[in-house]
């Protein structure tokens, strides 16, 4: 991946920066410029605002990868899941700090900041979100907080994942 392409995606990968339609309260990740949920899309024009996801959610579905993508050889077997965030959007991400047999649909997870891949020994290191269980199998952990304040108003309409 080119440096510029990854750099442009930094707000999303580092901080789960999405967008929210202030007309119907639907949250999108990655961010959208127009809201497809509003009956007339024009209603959302200039009403889409930046919105940071809290990073909390639950596993909607998952798979265990045994044949790794390049750069993930040291982590085999690892889990990739669809995580439904509390704000609505469904994110794809690796689930770490868990043994694959312990992952289940409905597992509560939170976003964590990890190394995604390296461009070889001398290249750039890419960082971003992954997910980790909110509770360790060996015992419960205290609640996690959001990495940064998010708007207090909860989404009133049932949000859905971006297309």
């Amino acid at each position: 991946m080119s440096i510029a392409r990854f750099w442009r995606e930094t707000p999303r990968r580092y901080n789960l920066g999405g967008s929210k339609c202030t007309n119907c309260s639907t949250v999108y990740f990655p961010p959208r410029a127009v809201c497809p949920e509003c009956t007339h899309h024009r209603q959302s024009i200039e009403k889409m605002v930046p919105f940071q996801l809290s990073g909390d959610g639950e596993v909607l579905s998952f798979t265990v990868v045994h044949d790794p993508a390049q750069g993930f050889e040291m982590q085999v077997p690892y889990v990739v899941a669809l995580v439904e965030t509390v704000e609505g959007p469904i994110l794809t991400g690796q689930v770490v700090d868990v043994d694959p047999p312990e992952v289940r649909i409905g597992l509560q997870v939170h976003a964590t900041f990890r190394k995604l891949r390296e461009e070889g020994k001398a290249g750039v290191i890419h960082y971003g979100y992954k997910f980790a269980p909110t509770e360790e199998p060996s015992g419960p952990s205290p609640p996690r907080g959001s990495p940064a304040p998010i708007p207090a108003e909860p989404p009133s309409a049932q949000p859905r994942a971006p297309a």
Binding site: M74, Q75, V96, D97, T112, F113, R114, K115, L116, I125, Y127, K130, G145, P147, A148
Partner: peptide
């Protein structure tokens, strides 16, 4: 973990 380093640990503790 293989995907943790000084940057990720620092970020987690500061968050």
């Amino acid at each position: 973990s293989p995907d943790e380093d000084t940057i990720t640990i620092s970020t987690e503790s500061l968050r």
